[in-house]
Simulated scan of single mutants.
Amino acid sequence: MTLNDSKRFHFLMHELDARVNNETMDRYGIERQSLVAMEELSELQKAISKLVRNPEDKTKPLEFKGLRHNLIEEMADVIICMDQLKEYYNITHAEIQINIDSKQARQRRRLEEE
């Protein structure tokens, strides 16, 4: 890994239409959107499982691309839901970053110990 690879700012740095998310939350409420978030997380879990069970080298290219496309769709759904939860509960980027830093520091220590 090079120095340039050591920091990547990419995961939730996507453009989301705040008006759409706000209207969704206003119309359906936190309870319903929390259930939607759980469903979307489950669908992402299934998409990942399908890719693990059907690696590209063992499947037809078009079939793999379909599985990959499904993964991308489910990731987008989860990012939208996470943004809604973040806004509703007034969670800042800094609060999330503190936890990311802590968890990655712990993982770094584990990797060094192995």
Rank of each mutant, 00 (worst) to 15 (best):
M1E: 06
M1L: 05
T2H: 06
L3F: 01
L3A: 03
S6Q: 06
S6L: 10
S6G: 00
K7M: 14
R8P: 08
R8V: 15
F9L: 11
F9Y: 07
F9P: 04
F11M: 05
F11L: 05
F11C: 07
L12R: 12
L12F: 15
H14G: 05
D17F: 04
R19A: 14
V20Y: 03
E23T: 11
M25A: 02
D26W: 04
D26V: 13
Y28G: 08
E31C: 00
R32I: 14
Q33N: 06
S34V: 03
L35C: 02
L35H: 00
V36I: 12
A37H: 01
M38A: 10
M38Q: 10
E39C: 10
E40N: 11
L41G: 13
S42Q: 07
E43D: 15
L44N: 00
L44T: 13
Q45E: 14
Q45S: 13
K46Y: 07
A47V: 02
S49D: 07
S49T: 04
S49I: 01
K50F: 05
K50P: 04
L51G: 03
V52C: 01
K60N: 08
K60P: 12
P61R: 01
G66A: 15
G66I: 09
L67Q: 08
H69S: 14
H69I: 10
N70T: 07
L71C: 07
M75E: 05
M75L: 11
A76C: 10
A76E: 12
V78S: 02
V78M: 00
C81E: 02
M82P: 00
L85Q: 06
K86F: 07
K86C: 02
T92F: 05
A94Q: 14
A94G: 02
A94F: 14
A94P: 07
A94S: 10
E95I: 07
N99C: 13
N99I: 12
I100S: 05
I100Y: 10
I100G: 02
D101C: 02
S102M: 11
Q104K: 07
A105I: 10
A105T: 14
A105D: 08
R108D: 15
R109Y: 05
L111W: 09
